[in-house]
């Protein structure tokens, strides 16, 4: 089981490096989006605006980055995976891969935000942690959504419809949580409590994905 997961992960990473155009495409997507935001806003926006823009862009980056994880697999290849691995190994490897990918993307967009839109963050390491946590959480939810959407027709649009309502509570939590890094004072333990809830939600999503994916798998 572990060997299978590692092998599948390795295959995903290899594929990503071989087909560099998709990776560069994603990077360009992030850069272009943030540049557009930079041009359309007045000099260094207010912290709240900065925060909400950051998370909204994370959301869209994630939809684009994760969407292809299932859509790129052709029918034939899915059949091949079906014959050699178990669904649980497959979904876990996908979740891990997307998590790592999205964490990387989050860091890059955080860096670009610093460069273009100024740096309102008081506590940089805390915000980095929140960004990683948030990126991981969003990517987990959208991995499962893309697995569902890949089964339907007109899937790219469907993924946004399915995913957005589900992600809103988590996104609100993250936005609130990241205010801690902007120097807003919370009552004692509230930051830990909020990040604990976000983390628990992530674990919960993984469990749900592992339980439900085998049903999506058979065709």
């Amino acid at each position: 089981m572990n060997r299978q997961i590692i092998a599948l992960l390795k295959k995903d990473f290899l594929l990503e490096f071989r087909q560099k155009h998709t990776l560069y495409g994603m990077l360009l997507y992030i850069a272009a989006t943030i540049f557009v935001v930079y041009l359309s806003l007045p000099e260094s926006p207010e912290t709240n605006v900065w925060n909400s823009l950051f998370w909204t862009i994370q959301l869209f980056v994630c939809v684009n980055a994760v969407a292809k994880s299932f859509l790129q697999e052709s029918r034939g290849r899915m059949l091949y995976f079906f014959s050699i691995t178990s669904p649980i190994a497959f979904i876990i490897s996908k979740l891990l891969f997307n998590m790592v990918l999205m964490m990387g993307m989050s860091c890059i967009s955080l860096f670009l935000f610093y460069v273009f839109l100024g740096n309102p963050v008081v506590n940089a390491s805390v915000f980095l942690g929140i960004t990683l946590l948030g990126g991981a959480g969003i990517s987990l939810v959208f991995t499962l959504m893309s697995a569902i959407a890949a089964k339907a027709q007109q899937n790219a649009a469907l993924m946004a419809i399915l995913g957005f309502p589900v992600i809103i509570p988590q996104l609100l939590l993250l936005i609130k949580l990241s205010k801690a890094a902007f120097g807003e004072v919370f009552r004692d333990g509230a930051v830990l409590q909020l990040s604990g809830i976000t983390f628990l939600m992530d674990v919960f999503v993984v469990v749900m994905a592992v339980v439900l994916f085998p049903y999506l798998w058979k065709d």
């Binding site: 939810v141 499962l144 309502p165 589900v166 509570p169 939600m201 919960f204 999503v205 749900m208 439900l212």
Partner: peptide
């Protein structure tokens, strides 16, 4: 349905 309900 299950996933959305359990998340929501």
């Amino acid at each position: 349905n299950i996933f959305a309900f359990a998340m929501l």
